[in-house]
C-alpha cells in the first residue's frame, strides 16, 4: 500500500477551505497550519498564467525528516504515511530543518506536528479532511498500488509534477498540470 495525493492545479481556486478544514478536523491551533496554499503567477498584463497549489507534507518515500530524527518520533506508518509520535518527540527541530518543503511546524505543546494524511480518517474509510471538503473536488487521494484508486486513475490520465524532485525525497504529493 502506498498512499498518495494529487491536487489539480487547473481546478484549485486557492480558496483555502482545505486549510481551515484541516485546522478544525485536526485541532491545529490558530496561528499554525498543516497545509497551505501557494499562488504562482507569471507574465505581463494581459499575458498571464497562474498556478494555484494546495500544499502539505509530501509523505516522501525518501524522507529526510524521518532520517534525521534522533528518537524515531518521525516515522513511516501504514502506506508510507510519515507521522510524528508526540510522545517520542523531543522538539529538537531537526526534522523541521530537514524538510525542503517546510511542511512541519513546532506545535505549541512542544512536539512537532504536520500533515498526517488524516490517517485517523482513512483508517475509518473516510477521505482526508482537506480532500473531502474541497469545493472544486481538486484533491484526489488514494493508494498508488491500487490501479483503480482515485489517485492512480487521475495520474494515468493527466500530466503531473512533484515539487523539488531534485531534492531526492520522492514526494507523494502530485500536482496535476
Amino acid at each position: 500500500m502506498r498512499y498518495a495525493m494529487a491536487v489539480d492545479t487547473k481546478k484549485c481556486v486557492g480558496c483555502s477551505d482545505c486549510v481551515v478544514a484541516c485546522q478544525t478536523e485536526n485541532n491545529v491551533p490558530i496561528g499554525y497550519c498543516r497545509e497551505w496554499v501557494v499562488e504562482v503567477m507569471a507574465g505581463t498584463y494581459p499575458q498571464l498564467e497562474m498556478e494555484i497549489r494546495s500544499e502539505r507534507c509530501n509523505h516522501c518515500v525518501n524522507a529526510p525528516c524521518v532520517r534525521c530524527c534522533p528518537t524515531g518520533a518521525s516515522h513511516f506508518s501504514d502506506g508510507g504515511i510519515v507521522l510524528v509520535d508526540p510522545k517520542k518527540c523531543i522538539g529538537c527541530g531537526a526534522c523541521i530543518a530537514s524538510c525542503p518543503y517546510d511542511a512541519r511546524y513546532p506545535h505549541p505543546d512542544g512536539h512537532v506536528d504536520k500533515c498526517t494524511f488524516c490517517i485517523h480518517r482513512i483508517k475509518n474509510g473516510l477521505e482526508p479532511a482537506c480532500a473531502s471538503v474541497c469545493p472544486t473536488k481538486c484533491i484526489y487521494f488514494g493508494d498508488m498500488d491500487d490501479p483503480n484508486s482515485n489517485v492512480s486513475v487521475v495520474l494515468k490520465k493527466r500530466k503531473f509534477k512533484t515539487l523539488i524532485p531534485e531534492a531526492g525525497t520522492d514526494p507523494q504529493l502530485y500536482f496535476l498540470i
Binding site: S16, V20, K137
Partner: peptide, 11 residues
Amino acid sequence: GRFCPRGTGGV
C-alpha cells in the same frame, strides 16, 4: 456535502 472555507470556518 462540501462547505466553502467560510462555512468551514464558521465555528
